[in-house]
Design a protein around this nucleic acid. Structure first.
Lengths: 211, 211
DNA sequence: CCAGGTACCTACTGGCGAGTAAGACTACTG
DNA sequence: CAGTAGTCTTACTCGCCAGTAGGTACCTGG
């Protein structure tokens, strides 16, 4: 990752991107506390004062990383999901988009999921915000499509469980990278749409038409 | 939490328990890096050298905490689950035991789930071990009861998703403590056994007989 | 070719926290 | 009442790391 020898005097915007990339890399590998500003500046190929001049304190830098990565992943999902479709198709497209993104951006995922959640203060809030948006999305999907009247808590907690299942499966996936994204996404889709009850009977869910 | 003034000269075994309790408390609130040995010894009501004399280095102490809490939670589940029953009943009793434990031991849960997973090194291994046992338990339940032949990966990843859903729901629950454990457990049971597909049609799962 | 701004650096400070040295106090044992 | 084993303390060392002081090189417009 270390940038090679002496690419000098770049404009600020470019340096900021380099620094952010390095920061996400280091934070994702080491976590907030164990990561040092020295290492980040080293990986970015600049000196520490530049880091402070451009991105502020360590906490500010970390918060900025979280915000950037959270925005990226939410945009990826929003782009991938197909509104005005049946609920199951919407969920399916959302899951595909999510696992697709994680597969291509492991570091982004780690800095979001593993690191941000454990640091107190504004980081958790930043992450909780994105997570909350994801949960609301699923909760709305559930509420609008269910026939039985469900409480707010009901839908929200189910959505939280689903989002958590996705997060956990993504984590599992990091240790089994040979599986394609589509397969992993399909497994989760089957679990949450059909349930174990159907799966043990051999009933599976599949998309209405091979898109 | 701070133990009150000068309870003097206790036997080693008692002190060790006090220290472990304090350590779990502090680690769960602050995380591994942010927690200081000074604070732990302070909360435990002793001085730092005692800490080192009895429990070794900070890393050793943390690993010991994880092992203790992991053992406690796995034992709670093992005690609660009812073998030789139908798969859904086994799952249900396991979920009840899990949420029951988390409800009564928030700190234990946090030190396990949030803190341990983010620190590299032996901690993650320690936790992954427990988590792996939980996943294997569920995977076995799935494999033995399914009629369709499932691959190892298939069962394992589904189990990982389920365990993650449970973890995530437990986390959600920490922010909504007014809900009773049984209700939360039932929600997850419905999600993973019936699936959204059934739930939106108003079909719910319920235990075969009100135990 | 100078003025001033922007990119960039080396080399420091100051504090926090892990781990320890060296001994003091208590209690049991003979 | 020694002696010894186990409990417990104060008061340090020492390294790491966030953050900064005080510059140097380079470019751009006049």
């Amino acid at each position: 990752m270390r940038t090679e020898g002496r690419a000098k005097r770049l404009p600020r915007a470019v340096r900021e991107r380099q620094i952010m990339d390095a920061a996400v890399d280091v934070f994702s590998r080491l976590g907030f506390h164990a990561a040092s500003m020295d290492e980040i500046s080293d990986v970015a190929g600049i000196s520490k004062p530049m880091l402070y001049a451009y991105l502020g304190s360590k906490e500010e830098l970390f918060a900025t990383c979280i915000r950037r990565e959270a925005t990226r992943i939410m945009e990826a999902i929003a782009t991938g999901v197909e509104p005005d479709q049946e609920p199951d198709v919407q969920l399916w497209s959302g899951l595909r988009a999510f696992f697709g993104f994680v597969g291509e951006n492991r570091a982004s995922w780690q800095v979001l999921h593993r690191q941000a959640s454990t640091q107190g203060g504004p980081f958790a809030a930043e992450l909780a915000d994105m997570r909350g948006r994801a949960v609301s999305l699923v909760a709305a999907l559930l509420t609008q499509s269910t026939k039985a009247p469900a409480t707010q808590h009901e839908a929200e907690s189910l959505a939280a469980a689903l989002v958590g299942a996705g997060e956990s499966l993504a984590e599992w996936w990091l240790d089994h990278p040979e599986e394609p994204a589509g397969v992993v996404a399909a497994r989760l889709m089957n679990l949450v749409w059909m349930g174990f009850g159907d799966l043990v009977d051999g009933n599976v869910w599949h998309p209405p038409s091979r898109r």
